[in-house]
């Protein structure tokens, strides 16, 4: 993971090896993995619909969000009782966030690797 300022520098000056964040993942996600774990959506679609989960919260932490909201509705106005649920949900969000940073760094390193291999190939061609 790079610092934010150095990332901004790279976006300007090393654009060919710096993925543009809004573009999303472009490399093969399974490259270099033996069995990569798949993210499991624990909350079902029926639960999402019946709990009226807003669209921007329908990520892989939705089940924690539902638990938290359920606790909130049961305990209102003593919502401090739901401290544990909030903590769980925030931890889940943080793990997701770390994954996004890891995805970005993996993408960047794959680009650097491709560039390095291409340079090596060009050098060999010159020697021949």
């Amino acid at each position: 993971m790079g610092g934010v300022l150095s990332h901004q520098y790279s976006l300007y000056f090393n654009r060919d090896v710096t993925p543009f964040p809004p573009d999303g993942i472009k490399q093969d996600p399974l490259f270099g993995f033996e069995d990569r774990p798949v993210k499991v959506m624990i909350a079902t679609e029926d639960e999402l619909a019946s709990c009226k989960v807003p669209p921007n919260k329908r990520d892989y932490c939705a089940h924690k969000w539902i638990e938290y909201k359920k606790c909130y509705a049961e305990n209102i106005p003593w919502v401090q009782n739901c401290e544990h649920e909030v903590h769980e949900y925030n931890d889940c969000l943080y793990a997701e966030l770390v994954d996004t940073y890891k995805d970005y760094e993996r993408e960047r390193r794959l680009l650097v690797r491709a560039q390095r291999i291409a340079a090596k190939k060009a050098k060999e061609n010159l020697e021949e």
Partner: peptide, 11 residues
């Protein structure tokens, strides 16, 4: 100004 990360994937 971008952070060095992608958006969190939605289900």
């Amino acid at each position: 100004y971008y952070y060095p990360k992608f958006e969190s994937p939605l289900y």
